[in-house]
Nucleic acid binder design. Structure first.
Length: 875
RNA sequence: GGGCGCUUAGCUCAGCUGGCUAGAGCACCUCCGUUACAUGGAGGGGGUCGGGGGUUCGAGUCCCUCAGCGCCCACCA
């Protein structure tokens, strides 16, 4: 039985147990004792290592954090009690756009990389509030403000996690922008570059005009937007019948480079290879054929622009068309037309568009087309999906630019197959989540775009030589030695150059971009295990055992992590992925700031207590979206209080522990045999990451333990049938209590620790997970679970009789007759003393009926209550 | 258009490889000052397991099909 139960230390069972103050007391104690410290001496096969999701510290705390982190914590605690050395670090995601945006609002600043560093800078405000004109600060000042704010945010998160009772080793934290993370990101990139897995290319990319950065496929989302089909006439040079197209982007007319129809489309076959003129501008463009053109869409003839959507990019590439870009990086139409315009009318038309936003330009060009008569009929309103950056506010544009890419199977079928194989080798919990991974990998449209035109992020560790004529040699980047990492090419000069040569002929320039935040987050297994920085730690913890995360970032975080590990280590970064669902509001709606239905965690912890909130969280099965349910938290609180009181009863029974040898009564043995089954079930469930089932089985046993077992044995335990009989009850209850406390410990760490401290040394969270065999040994091979079941049912029938008579449960029973099949009555006979005592039955008669059915439900109970006191209601 | 999940009591959900009369909690109703617990306890009512087929001695559970809800993915002119 785990730790020896009969310790000599005095018991300290309080008179009036309470949940108040447990969290502060025990979280402080755990910190002092290093209860959750990782033991660095452990070998890899003894370690269970967890790739904890680093929360975005600039994001707001909400109940979803509580939910999924509790799931992981229950597994961590289970593993620890099973004897694994748990490696459970915490990371902070303070890298990237969310932090930049929060810093801008919080301090009222914006970043202008051209400004010099001001060591004495004080931001105009702190704490957000009314927005005014943002003050421009240097990049270094901006990054400092980011660091300052994230440090505060991290503290808020850590306080919450401690309050919730996460068994994290708080001496092992990292941040995705800290030096170790930057070093890992740059090192991994340089190795990708050396192996040819990373490459730069000039190509059309999806571009957010507000953030002014490229975005990756994984960061896209579709939003339904109103739009309109505009039917536009393209004239032929010879003046014959015009060709009609339909477009939702008429403003891109000047960017048109061709028209296209399906090669099998009989209507247009004669036109293939001929030229037409764009309306308004009179630019000559060819009519071409391509299989992607859909004869059923619009007129069947499409306008190819550079670039209206990703299909345009495909056509442009495959039909080898020129670039006539008109939308600038700020989302406005360029000042200069993409091709020289021949006529004053065309120049006039262009002047109406130049400098306008895309929306304004659309209005203007529609007017022009109406005036010229080239817009046929009224625009036809539609709703259609439009690509957005998931954090953005305006539709993405497509602009050509030079970016860094990492091969992820999007353009390489062999690599893609290997990555799909990795996904199959990973143990998914629940298993069906693997479909999302497969779905995503199979749908990849290109390699992973990892460069961003932003300020707060990990810089690319690259410089480029500047030739004597001033041209920058982008094809031969200068790379640092790994020992120099991390580097900031914007403020450090490469080896062999001096800072004054920056931007000079014969000198160098730094790569201006930073990496995508996922380019760092995809390395959390490497960062957390101190890859290359601490080879000893890395060897003891990598590859990791578990990646817990939510389902919405399978395509980003999970997939990109697999990619990096595959490329760098040739193996999976972990063996298990536990996918948690989302928390929905009490009405099962998705929570969002804009809807104002976000549930904030701290007040819940204050009202119900951490154990109660954890209890609710643990009721959400892996992968399942779960509604915030305050009712469940109330039940969790009641369960915690019940644990206190039941424990107080069990421990208050005898002066000292009689020891497990004292267990002899058939009812006690039946109870322990049943508990052994619960232990097996809970263990099996936990092994499969089904913490919810483990909790359910434990809880259901515990309530019947309180309602039936404790009530049945109470009289005997108080000595109604002598010392030996009492000792058996007391001993069995203690064994059961110790077992149940440990089964509950992963879910209710505070209350179980509190009770444990009343009678045991050390932390329950370092105690051993219960096993079934010792319980079965105590119970004995011939223990019959039916003894408890039939006794509990008999007692229930007696209670029912009392309740039906509207009498107190203390009411004496003059006589009870119980009739059933012989086997049933034999089992009941073994516990009849307890039934008589618990039911306050004066005369209990058991009658064998050979014709009765064999089940509990076939038990017949007749009860004669003692007459009511005078003045009491009649029976 | 492709994929995944869900549909069991008024509500939130269990029900694992098919097998006692389909369960729990909340809510509701009735009752109980009881010496672990009134931050409690005992008992009760309430479900044709989304519809329709099929396999089987037997289906909430397996197969087919339809419907509704939710999510993921998709080249969205």
């Amino acid at each position: 039985m785990g730790p020896e139960a009969n310790t000599v230390r005095p018991m300290t069972v309080p008179d009036k147990p309470t949940l108040d103050g447990l969290e502060a007391r025990w979280s402080a104690q755990w910190e002092t004792d290093g209860t959750y410290r990782f033991d660095r001496r452990a070998r890899r096969d003894q370690v269970f290592s967890i790739d904890t999701p680093p929360p975005t510290v600039s994001g707001s705390l909400h109940i979803g954090h509580i939910f999924s982190y509790t799931h992981t914590d229950t597994v961590a605690r289970f593993r620890r009690m099973q004897g694994d050395v748990v490696f459970y670090p915490m990371g902070w995601d303070d890298n990237g756009l969310p932090t930049e945006r929060r810093v801008q609002n919080y301090f009222g600043v914006r970043c202008d990389p051209s400004l010099p560093y001001d060591p004495d800078l004080e931001p105009p405000r702190s704490g957000g509030g009314a927005s005014g004109d943002a003050v421009a600060v240097s990049r270094r000042n901006f990054v400092e403000l980011c660091e300052r704010l994230t440090a505060e945010d991290e503290q808020v998160f850590e306080d919450l996690w401690r309050r919730l009772g996460l068994s994290v080793d708080w001496s092992m934290t990292y941040a995705t922008i800290d030096e170790r993370a930057r070093r890992a990101s740059q090192r991994a990139f340089l190795r990708n570059l050396a192996r040819g897995e990373a490459y730069a290319a000039e190509a059309p990319v999806l571009w957010d005009v507000d953030f002014q950065t490229a975005v990756a496929q994984a960061e896209l989302e579709d939003r339904e937007l109103p739009g309109a089909y505009h039917r536009i006439a393209f004239h032929r040079a010879d003046g014959s019948e015009p060709v009609f197209i339909e477009t939702t982007r008429p403003e891109l007319l000047p960017a048109c480079v061709a028209l296209v129809a399906h090669p099998g489309d009989e209507r247009y076959r004669p036109l293939f290879g001929t030229d037409v003129l764009t309306p308004l501008f009179g630019v000559r463009v060819p009519v071409l054929a391509h299989h992607l053109a859909d004869p059923d869409k619009g007129t069947g003839m499409a306008m190819i622009c550079t670039f209206g959507d990703t299909t345009d990019v495909t056509w442009w590439r495959e039909l080898d068309l020129p670039v006539r870009a008109i939308v600038g990086r700020d989302g406005r139409i360029e000042q200069r037309p993409p091709v020289p315009l021949d006529t004053p009318d065309a120049e006039q038309a262009w002047a109406q568009l130049a400098g306008k936003t895309v929306r304004q330009a659309q209005r203007a060009i529609v007017e022009l087309l109406v005036a010229s008569g080239d817009l046929i009929g009224e625009p036809r309103a539609i709703t259609h999906p439009v690509k957005f950056f998931e954090k953005g506010d305006r539709p993405l544009e497509i602009v050509a630019s030079r970016q860094w890419y990492l091969r992820n199977g999007g353009r390489d079928i062999n690599l893609r197959t290997q990555l799909l194989d990795r996904g199959r080798a990973l143990a998914w919990h629940p298993g069906y989540m693997q479909a999302r991974y497969d779905n995503w990998v199979e749908g990849l449209a290109g390699d992973w775009l990892i460069s961003r035109q932003r300020f707060f992020g990990v810089p690319f560790p690259l410089w480029y030589p500047v030739a004597a004529d001033g041209t920058v040699d982008l094809d031969n980047p200068i790379t640092p030695d790994e020992s120099q990492l991390p580097v900031d090419p914007a403020s450090e000069a490469p080896e062999g150059y001096a800072e004054h040569q920056r931007g000079q002929a014969g000198g160098f320039v730094g790569d201006p971009d930073v990496m995508d935040t996922w380019a760092t987050s995809s390395l959390t297994p490497q960062i957390a295990t101190a890859w290359e920085d601490d080879p000893d730690l890395h060897a003891r913890t990598f590859p990791m055992d578990l990646r817990p995360q939510a389902h919405d970032i399978i395509r980003t975080w999970l997939f990109s992590t697999v990619v990096r590990s595959h490329l760098e280590h040739g193996e999976l970064p972990w063996t298990n992925a536990a996918i948690s669902g989302w928390v929905l509001d009490p009405d099962r709606k998705k929570m969002s700031k804009s809807k104002g239905n976000v549930v904030v965690p701290l007040p819940l912890l204050e009202e119900y207590g951490a154990d109660a909130v954890r209890y609710w969280a643990a009721s959400g099965r892996p992968g399942t979206d779960t509604a915030a349910d305050f009712g469940q938290m109330k039940i969790g609180r009641r369960l915690s209080i019940k644990l206190l009181n039941a424990s107080k009863f069990v421990l208050g029974l005898a002066g000292s522990d009689p020891g497990a040898d004292a267990v002899s009564h058939p009812l006690d043995r039946a109870m322990l045999a049943g508990l052994a089954d619960v232990v097996d079930d809970a263990t099996t469930a936990f092994d499969a990451y089904d913490y919810t089932r483990a909790l359910e089985r434990t809880e259901s046993f515990f309530w019947s333990f309180c309602d039936d077992v404790v009530e049945l044995v109470k009289g005997r335990a108080y000595g109604a049938f002598g010392d030996d009989a009492a000792a058996s009850a007391s001993a069995a209850l203690r064994v059961a209590l110790s077992t149940q406390l440990r089964l509950f410990a992963p879910f209710l760490p505070f209350v179980t620790e509190e009770v444990w401290s009343w009678w045991q040394d050390g932390s329950i969270h370092r105690a051993s997970w219960p096993s079934a065999e010792p319980l079965r040994t105590i119970a004995g091979a011939d223990a019959d679970p039916m003894v408890l079941r039939v006794a509990a049912d008999a007692l229930g029938e007696v209670r029912k009789a009392k309740t039906a008579a509207k009498r107190s449960l203390r009411t004496d029973v003059d006589r009870a007759v119980m009739t059933g099949a012989p086997a049933l009555m034999a089992a009941l006979g073994l516990a009849q003393d307890d039934v008589r005592e618990a039911g306050r039955i004066a005369e209990l008669v058991l009658v064998d009926d050979p014709d009765a059915g064999p089940t509990i439900n076939d038990l017949l109970v007749e009860v004669v209550l003692s007459p009511a006191e005078s003045g009491s209601p009649p029976a």
